[in-house]
Design a binder for these strands. Sequence first.
DNA 1: ATCTGTAGCGCC
DNA 2: AAAGGGCGCTACAGAT
Length: 661
Amino acid sequence: MGADVCFATTEDLLEYFKDHTEIDFDTETEGFDPYTCKLLSAQFGDAKNQYVVDCNTISMQEFKGLLENPNICWNMQNAKFDLKFLYHQRIVPKKIFDTFLAERVLTTGLFRARKALDFLVHKYCGQTMDKTVRGNIHREGLSKRVIIYAATDVAYLGEIKRKQIAKLTEQNLLKAMQLDNLYVKVLAYIEYSGFKLDRDLWIKKMEKDYANLDKAHTALNDWIINSEFKEYIDTQLDLFSEDLKCRINWSSSKQVVEFFKKLGVDTQIKDSKTGGFKDSVDAKVIKPQKDLSPIIPIYLQYKGYEKVVSTYGNSFLKAINPVSGRIHTQFTQIMDTGRLSCGGKNRSTKEEYINFQNIPATPEDREEDMVYARDCFIPEEGYNFIVADYAGQEQIVLANQSLDKDILEFYDKELGDMHSFIASKIYPEIGDDLNQIKKNHKNKRQIAKSAGFAINYGGNGITIADNLSISQEEGEEVYESYFRAFPGLKNHFAKAKQGVLNTGYVEFNTLTKRKSYIDFFDEYKKLEKRIREYGFWDRYRAGKANDTHEFRTELRPLVKDFFKYQGMMERKSLNYPVQGTSAEITKLAGVYLFNHLEEQGQLFDTWLPNVVHDELLVECKEEYAEELAKVVKDCMEKAGARYYTRVPLKADPYIGKDWCH
DNA sequence: ATCTGTAGCGCC
DNA sequence: AAAGGGCGCTACAGAT
């Protein structure tokens, strides 16, 4: 671009933008962490003029009024990043349009739009951005070419936004986009808040985990050394040692498979990728065979400790921020179902981020003297946690979406135990006294529980049979009776399946109309076209009968792929609306809560350390806790009611010093 | 030494 | 014809 660089004062900038209702905004920083890295520049712009503020000489406080002006929408690419640096200056913009999030909303399911702006500049403006200057910002300061580079980052945002809004309108996605543009402020705040880890307790936990792992490891090796499996004993003694050694690396599933087969364990499972069989020492495969040999339970124990030692170990300590003393992780805001994900690694800085969404839940029956991972997450001195999750969030969303008469009855009459209720519907002969079923028909209740779970995720009779280790026929029978019992659900699911096959996307709900697009839909349609060609099935049958080359190499794989894709789409069509709408409800609850904190002046005094799909975690001063817990409950239920009123979503916050669940 | 794919498993 | 949804991390195994 024919750039013309000239000097301007803070007053010039404020004067220029005073009547703007939208401003393109970006920052350059020393790095990714607002606690340890400085803000270098801030760029304010529109299509005509861009201002580059040197943050070394000018305080961002000069622009606080502008940035917090409620009439201005800030157009940003990946706003979460810049927001954290603004939060660090206690500046909270009111309205955001994030071109990165808009792109993800437009292309959910297809591919994951990246955070770099150059892709969108190319896609929407046909321009190529020169990113080579970026690396020099730190070294050469605000030189002319750096100024031009920095200004370029905000020159295109307005144009991208307008073109995105046209597409969002066309695809009926404006509301989904609005929700995520509201939520990005919340998610930035969650990352900025961080989560306090008790370092000493975590070290104690690691020591105990290591000791347990070591004990299990020794037990495994001793078992081998004292066994008949001489081929796994290393007899080549070390010069100064008389110890025999076990040759098996217990962390290698390949080696353990080999040994377990010799032990007589059935390691065969179906490979869903190839359709053939493969060997596995997955816990769910070998656990049912644990009575075969005492080494199997020891191995399972070893695997458990290996997991907590490796995944939930030293990386957590390394992640503690030297300035805040807390762990600040990174979330991704829009995955294929609109859910968040968490964790990751920065490719350039090698920084590793902790996944806050899969930290082991503390078991009900705590072992004496054990330290569990969640025990180590604590509130600051004088603060409390408020832990709030939705009760049966996905189940209730499904009830509202399917409006199945009998499922509604369960909620209307507050019958209590869902699994017993389903059992009573599948097996009418056991009556409808749910307490009695829970006590006297444990097996049928277990079948109902497992079936309900599988079916909600698109499973079928065979899945149920696999899960319960019952015959295929029995599994099919459970599947059939489930849908006989809930015809409304059956009808709802049939419509969902038809929908995705017709359109190539799954629409989550009627409020936001958020969609997840099927990335292999074109391929599916091509296969479908071939299969629908006149005479295809005659050729298929003839080929199959004669086992022809064409059948093996062309016809069979084609049909196989066709049905594989169709099955995948159908299962997504059942699950995504439930999972995705639940994610939206949790996001909206977060927005309501954030707005409350902002209005009450409680931001930076009350923290949001984590969010896990259906759960919000708040950290506030002890004296706020009682009242704020009510607000949290209210925000969550209000968010639920924005989507569904037929069966209300409920939340019940817990106040305490621990992250219990 | 570094990368990629897979198995296995943690959470909802 | 296949046969439960969504994620991310760690170890191994095999490759470069």
